[in-house]
Design a binder for these strands. Sequence first.
DNA 1: AGCACGCCGACT
DNA 2: GTCGGCGTGCTC
Length: 807
Amino acid sequence: MIVSVIVDVESKQINRVFDYLVPEHFKQTVRPGMRIIVPFGPRKVQGFVIHTKHESDVDPGRLKPFDDIVDVKPALTSELLALAEWLTDHTLCLQVTALKSMLPAAMRAAYDKRISLADDASRTNLDSALLPFFKRTGDVMWDEVKKTEPGLLKIVQKEVKNGLLTIEPVVKSRETKKRVTVIEPLLPQDQLLEKADETDARAPKQALLLRYLSKITAPAALTRLLEETGISRATVKAAVKNGWADQRQVEEYRDPYEGREFKSTEPLPLMNQQKEALDSICRSLDENEHRTYLLHGITGSGKTEVYLQAIDRALKQGKEAIVLVPEISLTPQMVHRFKERFGSDVAVLHSALSKGEKYDEWRKIRDREVTVAVGARSAIFAPFENLGMIIIDEEHETSYKQEEEPRYHARDVAVERGRTYSCPVVLGSATPSLESFARAKKGVYTLLTMGSRVNNVKLPGVRIVDMREELRNGNRSMFSTDLLDAMNDRLEKKEQMVLFLNRRGYSTFIMCRDCGYVAECPHCDISLTYHRSNQTCQCHYCGYHVTRPNRCPDCESEHIRFFGSGTQRVEEELKKVLPEARVIRMDVDTTRRKGSHEKLLTAFEKGDGDILLGTQMIAKGLDFPNITLVGVLTADTMLHIPDFRSSEKTFQLLTQVSGRAGRHKKPGEVIVQSYTPDHFSIQLVKNHDYLSFFGREMVYRRQSDYPPYFFMALINISSEDLTKVVTVSGKIGEFLRKSLAETTVVHGPAASAVPRIKDRYRYQCMVKYKTEPKLAHTLKEILKTYQTEMTRSDLAITIDTNPYMLM
DNA sequence: AGCACGCCGACT
DNA sequence: GTCGGCGTGCTC
């Protein structure tokens, strides 16, 4: 018996299957989708079994048996193995990269070396630098040595040559399972009580323990037992020794929601528009028909309730469901709604969980202990085998696109899986991506529209304030008179408000007023942001930071000024103009710690704050009844980034934040401050007019050959050597033009929008096409041509067949 | 990737 | 004579 294996070596040359013999004792257990440990050249690596067979094309003498099996159950189902192949083809990534991306991070292998003394006598002759590590008997792991003294590898290798040490490569598993000690009575209840009566006089603690044991029906956690009875570990030990009880370790799933109560909810009554949407979706479900629905429902129209009831129907048919939400930790409210409706049937996979917690949630899916997976992008690979429903909430969100390899879009994967399982895929949004809406209009997707809010709550009134006008009237502050008045009004009425600004830190750039010097990152072509809390200037691209200069590094002038405002600056300013207001600031800097995000939101919900000030992360999913005012401080920052989607992003963001106001009984108001108030993506927010926005934006996309009219592919070339980047990208551009059809447009090569990041120069070529059968082949050809140069030098070529980040 | 093999310059 | 530089090639 032979297995074909994709080994965990990320290199173009190794991107194919290798065959291994199956050792006799594994013949019954090994199956496709399992991870195994294989010898690969001189080392050991992890590999994925792709299929089993009885003959190999490889010379039988060269076949080696594999070492071990990692998984008890296959990590990947046969469907996911096929999906990995699809991912590889569509994103042009390595097969092993696709396979690994489907597993939780805790299941990715780590490698180490075990160093042992050749024999006991070797110790005396060992290089003195290594002695501290070999004082005790037993082996030493290289990772341990590296931690204290990374330079010692040379000496270790020398001693290997001298025959004093041996090195054995090992594959470490990062999977840690949480274990708890449990106690279980070994005697029936009546005997326990009998024994308790006997021991009462001599050993009261034993008696207490025996009575406790007589009451339990399932094994009890030791820690809890000790806590509740107040007896000591020694007492328990004695009882175990007496043969009254058994103590053992059991595996436990870490429950990130432990101790939290979710009251269960019943389906809510639906409005007509919701019913119609639900009926269409359920029809596909009942008929086992794959169909992609675009659920276009304005903010507050009750999309979530439609998802919940559609899922419920799928579960009742014995099927499973996947729900994707953008960066789920950011929308705890959404998680709660699923937990409340489906209780312990839900596994949650979000970025704020620890690796171990994610692994446990993932195992619940694999072991079929749950039937619903709610999570961010990678949850689309949930290893279900009878999928009945896939839902992508806020489908326009760009976080569904992975910006590392494999560069996939969860929406595409969802449609592919929906096709395999013949099940409906529901894309929901108040502001669909242009791609999806265009597809819905063409009939590729089925459009479902929900145009009014639940209970007919009115959409908030939106006012657009011209900040140039404010300036002309002598208001140089960051708050317009309108916004300030409105804020004062809400403070008086004890109502809450949300202030939105998509820039963290304190200021956007630092400039010397005397000589015009602007502080820039020495490793990236980008200006530094001032962070007031720790008095540093930071680069948001590479993390470089320096203490703030008091004098201009160029001309020694003291007139260093900070321009533009970030959330920290606004917070400070708010303290000045509204000293009595309680402000809760929410951005990457205040939510870095685990759970802090939710803590801040709960505080705001409880009314511990009047103003919630934040970046992007407060734009989605917030649903608090007391919010009656939303202020957008600078609507145009998004508009000026060099990206053809900038108008779309601006409109989506403004509409989303607007939706945070007046979702319940109290009417809401939105004030948008802008320096370009006449731009259509800002004007059309006023009437929440998605359709007009769609129409206007499509005209621009058609004129400029952008998606959805054209497809794109982006080739990025980078190196520390600028000359190399220029020559290589030049050749690539030439090759693209020569190889592709005449109707295809090739832009560049040109320097990227951020021409240097982390000391690497970056150039790019852009391909825009309608149909291009030769594209995949041409791009693969490019990678093949530069394959050796990429391994031998620092040259890097990355290809994105559906780019969202054009920087 | 990571490791061995192999062929040329500067040291005990 | 040997140590070590990194070009080349291979991994079932």
